[in-house]
Design a protein around this nucleic acid. Structure first.
Lengths: 230, 230
DNA sequence: TCAAAAGTGTTTCTGCTACACCCATGC
DNA sequence: GCATGGGTGTAGCAGAAACACTTTTGA
């Protein structure tokens, strides 16, 4: 079976930068390529866009197939179209970035054309196939920008989390330190967290209060002109 | 001549939302389509991506061909891939937005496959072909967001402009009013404008001081951590 | 009782907001 | 001299930043 067109067409792929947070470091999910080109190299999960799926659907499908991940925060990032970005010829890729709670998906599974899917700390990335390093850096920039004015950090945490966890997440991603009292004050004053008791487990010190992000409340506040801001 | 691939491929286009400012209203440059589909309808300038050009190059080329515009602020916006967005079949489009001084390009010229290119005020847009209304709205959102934290508003003004012009631009795009004194203070305190004398022409009142945006200065400040912010 | 993290208020400072009058120019 | 927009300073307020001690818990 083959397909013929009057004019040549670039191939179209999607690639996904999946970020996770292990409590200390930002992590990225990479797959080991099982096919040429760059066979055996690490790369972002991704693949060709099918004719009967939207770009968002393609990104979701590829993530599901290559990493087993589903139902995560997924947002279009940027489209990369450098002429020589793929040795197979002209391939344009629509990049996405995703945020996922790493502990809900600690053992991602390799799938069809990915022999492995593994978390890497941002600070110890392997060499990546194609222009995937560029894509990853773009995604990191976006994450750093967006986390300041949208409540997306919660996507990386467990459903219930302590203020220390939240603060360490922000500090780790942004590379800056915050005052504990001011941080707590600012977030609490937004009124988008619900307390859910000190369920924290066996720790050799005082138990922290755990909170949940109240998304419906946030959506409602947002509609009334409220803006999340760190 | 024809091109055959093992798998079907979406066609890939670029579309450009070109914004201009006439001193009172935000304007968008549209072309009248000379070919099916939507022949005779208004649409964003754009067209198919060639195999030997990047996406940015394609956007620039299409603008040049269809409107005569060159050397303008042009930035990738978003990629639209809904299944039914083009009646010819699966067409994915990488949208761009551009900012241009309307008085340097008052009479844009229609080109190859565009029989006319015309400025429309945002408030009086015709019905657009394809999903171009969606694209345009996305571009407007982006413009409104970005103008707050990047000095891109200057792209829409003449090289030399008065504070009133600048303020009216911001007020028009954002739909909010600013205090004249505070606005002036804030912008001046950034130190990114150079005074260039009261060259303003025949006006029946006091002549305004004109300013130029000092881009090198801005770039330098930016590198030292300065952030433009309205 | 010690170590380790949780929790909590107040003061200071900075930057934003609100606000009104005189100036220059052409008609 | 009048109509029109240009240009300017200050006081009050709100939100950000700085800052240190007490509490809880398990070992």
């Amino acid at each position: 079976m083959s397909y013929t067109y009057e004019h040549p067409r670039p191939a179209l792929t999607v690639d996904c930068v999946v970020f996770g947070w292990d409590g200390a470091e930002l992590q990225v999910l990479l797959i080991e390529r099982a096919e040429a080109p760059f066979m055996g190299n690490w790369a972002l999960p991704g693949g060709f866009v099918h004719m009967d799926e939207t770009l968002d659907d393609a990104a979701q499908r590829e993530l599901q197939e290559e990493t087993g991940l589903a139902d995560l925060f997924l947002e279009q990032l940027f489209t990369f179209g450098a002429l020589d970005r793929d040795p197979r010829g002209r391939v344009v890729t629509v990049a996405y970035y995703a945020l996922v709670n790493i502990f809900h998906h600690e053992k991602p599974q390799g799938g069809t054309d990915a022999s492995q899917a593994t978390w890497f700390p941002m600070e110890q990335l392997p060499t990546l196939a194609f222009d995937h390093t560029t894509i990853l850096n773009t995604a990191l920039e976006r994450l750093r920008g967006k986390i300041l004015y949208r409540p997306i950090g919660f996507e990386l945490l467990p459903e219930k989390f302590s203020f220390t966890q939240l603060q360490e997440l922000y500090e780790g991603i942004l590379g800056t330190a915050f005052d504990r009292r001011n941080f707590r004050k600012k977030i609490l004053s937004m009124g988008i967290l619900n307390e859910c008791g000190k369920v924290q487990g066996d720790v050799p010190h005082r138990k922290a209060t755990l909170y949940k992000f109240d998304e419906p409340k946030y959506k409602q506040l947002e509609m009334n002109g409220f803006e999340f801001k760190i």
